[in-house]
């Protein structure tokens, strides 16, 4: 799997996700649909921050979510698909 020098852990998603989620996000539980590994969001491997954040399964690198902050908008995809939600947030 990936070495530890090229990514951050999922705790770095706390700030960007808290703009659109009412609950503290890093303790959320996630199960990988590809390798069945499970664990907290804080344990994901996060690549970025630019052009955006890509959070992957620490076991098989399957994409858990992608998040892009552009001005007053946050774009979010959950999973590996290409359908994104765009949220308006306070700049």
């Amino acid at each position: 799997m990936a070495d530890t020098s090229d990514h951050l852990d999922g705790n770095c998603l706390a700030g960007p996700l808290s703009e659109i989620l009412a609950l503290e996000p890093t303790t959320a539980w996630w199960r990988c649909p590809q390798c069945a590994r499970s664990g907290p969001l804080a344990g994901l491997h996060v690549y970025g921050p630019e052009p955006g954040l890509t959070a992957r399964c620490p076991g098989c690198a399957y994409i858990a979510l992608r998040l892009v902050r552009q001005g007053e908008h946050v774009w979010l995809t959950v999973g590996g698909g290409t359908g994104a939600f765009r949220f308006r947030v306070t700049p």
């Binding site: 052009p51 955006g52 892009v68 908008h73 774009w75 995809t77 290409t82 359908g83 994104a84 765009r86």
Partner: peptide
Amino acid sequence: LWKSAKWVRALRLTTTNEPGFWESVGY
């Protein structure tokens, strides 16, 4: 430069425009 895809393996010609990795999240 995000259009200059690293580790390229395939080009798929399409009749419709299909957003890619970054294009589907706001780029």
